[in-house]
Design a protein around this nucleic acid. Structure first.
Length: 277
DNA sequence: CCTTAGACCTGGAGGC
DNA sequence: TGCCTCCAGGTCTAAG
């Protein structure tokens, strides 16, 4: 589901609602959700933790707790909501795989239709980037560290398609399938170009496009194509600004050429064959 | 190292 | 209505 902007929006919302609250009880019902220990151990570790603040790196949510670190990756469909009580209808309840009872008597619910999302608990550390869940990530796509110079150096020996490389979280963290298409369109770079074939100038265009598009998407509350909505229950609206993603056969906003759909590394990829060289 | 296919999951959409 | 196939904001693994 979410890429950097959607996760950033989730963090923004949760921070205002959860900081300072204690988790009185945790109950995870889909064991695979917890990536680095048993659910029993996780539930116990989470109990009586106070949520100090929530941050984000790439597509990961980082809950800074009074006695530990809780990390979540929503993958395709994970989402959080805060409710006064669990829904009555079984259909609504079916996809809630974790419930956290809060000290203000509300419930933090985690739902995840496809059950791909993952969570980690760690005891306190000095630097969260030493943690196994985060340590291999590249610079965050929103950051200045993700620059043309950085990208150019990183792509130097890579023959892999640039689209695939932008989706590689070890190179840059926070870009997913939708924004990769939009970024490459804005930069005028064909998604199949081998990484090592990109000039410094093209790398700069890509980094600049990434910064602009991700920020614009965050300002619009993210992209809602199918399942994503913020924890406040409202959809984002950046889908209305998409220029190529899921626009197969629609005219290119620059040149009217029909947008093409191809597969790159088994992911649907949309591009303008005339504007992207 | 690189690429590719398959796995993990479920449900919505479209074809017949 | 029902059945079937394909598809989905992600990532990991095995195999060639």
């Amino acid at each position: 589901m979410p890429e950097g902007p959607e996760v950033a929006r989730t963090v923004r919302f949760l921070n205002g609602k959860l900081d300072g609250l204690e988790i009185e009880k945790a109950s995870v019902s889909w064991p695979k959700t917890i990536a680095n220990m048993s659910v029993e151990e996780f539930d116990e570790k989470m109990e009586h933790q106070t949520i100090e603040t929530i941050s984000r790196y790439g597509k990961y949510l980082i809950f800074h707790l009074s006695h530990g670190i809780w990390i979540c990756h929503l993958r395709m469909e994970g989402r959080f909501s805060i409710v006064d009580q669990l829904p009555e209808e079984p259909k609504e309840r079916k996809h809630i795989h974790a419930v956290f009872k809060l000290s203000n008597h509300q419930l933090l619910c985690y739902r995840d239709t496809r059950k791909f999302g993952r969570m980690w608990f760690y005891d306190p550390v000095d630097n969260v980037h030493d943690l196994e869940a985060l340590r291999d990530l590249g610079p965050d796509a929103f950051s200045d560290e993700f620059s043309g110079t950085y990208l150019h150096e990183k792509l130097a020996k890579r023959k892999t398609a640039i689209k695939t490389l932008l989706l590689n979280q070890q190179i840059v963290a926070g870009i997913g399938n939708i924004y990769a298409d939009e970024i490459l369109f804005q930069a005028g770079v064909h998604p199949l170009r081998p990484g090592q074939s990109l000039s410094m100038e093209e790398c700069e265009k890509i980094a600049n496009a990434a910064h602009e598009i991700l920020k614009a998407a965050l300002d619009k509350g993210g992209t809602t194509i199918r399942s994503f909505e913020g924890s406040d229950g409202h959809p984002g609206s950046f889908q209305n600004q998409l220029k190529v993603h899921r626009k197969e056969n629609k005219p290119c906003p620059n040149c009217e050429q029909p947008i093409e759909k191809i597969l790159v590394n088994n992911r649907s990829t949309y591009l303008c064959p005339k504007c992207q060289k």
